[in-house]
Design a protein around this nucleic acid. Sequence first.
DNA 1: TGTCGTCGTCGAATCGATTCGACGGACAGT
DNA 2: ACTGTCCGTCGAATCGATTCGACGACGACA
Lengths: 325, 325
Amino acid sequence: MAGVSRSTVSYALSGKRSISPETRRRVDDAIRELKFTPNAGARSLRTAQTGVLGLLVQFHEDEFAPAMLQYILPITETARTLGYDILMMTENDGAEALTRAAESGMVDGLILLDVIDGDPRVDALRATHQPGVLVGLPGDTRGLDVVDLDFVAAARNLVDHLVELGHRDVVLVSPPRHVFDRGGTYSWRFRDAAVQRASEIGLKLTARYGESQQPAIDANLHEILDESPDATGLIMHNDASVAALPRLLHERGVRVPDDLSVVSLYSRDFARWFSLPYTAIESSPGLLGKVAITQLTQRIAHGDDAGPHGTRLVAAEIVDRGSTR
Amino acid sequence: MAGVSRSTVSYALSGKRSISPETRRRVDDAIRELKFTPNAGARSLRTAQTGVLGLLVQFHEDEFAPAMLQYILPITETARTLGYDILMMTENDGAEALTRAAESGMVDGLILLDVIDGDPRVDALRATHQPGVLVGLPGDTRGLDVVDLDFVAAARNLVDHLVELGHRDVVLVSPPRHVFDRGGTYSWRFRDAAVQRASEIGLKLTARYGESQQPAIDANLHEILDESPDATGLIMHNDASVAALPRLLHERGVRVPDDLSVVSLYSRDFARWFSLPYTAIESSPGLLGKVAITQLTQRIAHGDDAGPHGTRLVAAEIVDRGSTR
DNA sequence: TGTCGTCGTCGAATCGATTCGACGGACAGT
DNA sequence: ACTGTCCGTCGAATCGATTCGACGACGACA
């Protein structure tokens, strides 16, 4: 229709060779007239690039799903601004899904969400030789790009915050025990840092396991609060439990911060969804997603030249919502 | 490696022509040995099928995101069991995203989530001539496959439930006014059915608009409760508001069901995430997703032969959680 | 006037699968 | 022994883009 060869059209589209203004105009007109859109399959066959990133979301049985959502949305948005679409895979067998997507060439790269130590998806990723980035820190990170929150700094900040206000006896509610056992490194990275910091500065800190499913959550929290009647501070590191806390404290007649100072770790969105009024470390899922995708796309574009593989720990800032005294 | 032609391998894989056991064995061995996986791009180029469904998630500014998640998960799972992967698109300009995915042949079909009346994505879908299914009912459904909850039956059930218990004065909290204005048909389908049913059987029903963002939610609920002091029943049709309700009622010292009977409309998952103790119509996002995907894949496979286009309203069942008396 | 570079365009090869028609061999029926 | 089927396999065409080498036209320069 434009009276030129297909190669000329391709060059007009990609700009990889110069094109006379006249020809470019005719090509553009024809494209508009014919409503032409390049076929993704053909393009990916030829270029071995798809413009799609695989997002592997792992819903461990007892995962608190809304917490995952905070990551998914910013990731898809950031990816889009960089020209990528997101193929979301939520299968139980994440390793198999990853392999399938990678080997068949459906994706240019992979994002692994909520990675734990010993995560089978990590082995699968290593085996595919596809660019990938982990959100969540496993034990062995050799040759991997990893992004995670700096849970150690977060825990220290919260402990310091309470100590500065004069608290001498606080309770920490961690994720459930099986999250520790399963390899959720954020659980012990946070707890151990909190415990250590507390002992450094002479704070009595009682670390307890939380629960992640109702009705166990309520029973567990009641028990924890009953058993530490003298504690004046509460550090919540457990999404499902902190979501239930406001109602539970009301039931117990505990006023925050008058009777109890509460601090936690969650995102602004999470706080909004669950009307959480607590001073908290901002877990910055948006920033994490952005860093992860940026890193991944650079790895896709430049391979090993994009710099050394490594772990990026995102700094944690505290948002004061007035729940401490 | 198997000593056969490529076409034979293809037939061995697809089973579209018979293959001798001997040859099949050699092909399988070679495939395993070489770790061969068909290339998705090449396959989709040749067959014009991708094995991918586009999922268009629309986050209206004030959408309550966790509510959306209930739909996304079952959809990806159902799709997978039927052999499809999910390309998730969350862009603001959903119509553009839809067109891009469809025209470039990235997907075999489209799922539109949270469709409203006058939704620009519906026009875009019509323009592409791609199979698609809507979750959420627009005004004009000609030629479309639509799946939605039967909000009319749901509203009637809840009204009847309260009336049978002897309530004579109840309040309905609907979605925010701008959801009505914007074309969220579920909002008025539910409200109008409730109002009509109430008038049929002589129940005083005060319909109010809710809010969807804190802190407006709390102020709004307090106001609504203050202005209907004699109401003995509360019907909540508003995800964000009902999520805040348990805490708010505690603050007001209102006991459920002793002082107030509360019914609502949400899913089991939603109830779990937000510890909601109210008797409610089960909104069945899992079933809706399943029906939608099943319908879509049949449309993909059989086109217009898959039966007439139409709207499937999924029946709503009540789950008694003991919040009424 | 002849040579060389640059610019814009074209033709052909290529990516990796699927599928159609053809074809040779085995076997049954007469 | 001949014909006709059926079965298993192959070769070649095809899907729709990208890209490399080639080539003609044109201007610059000697």
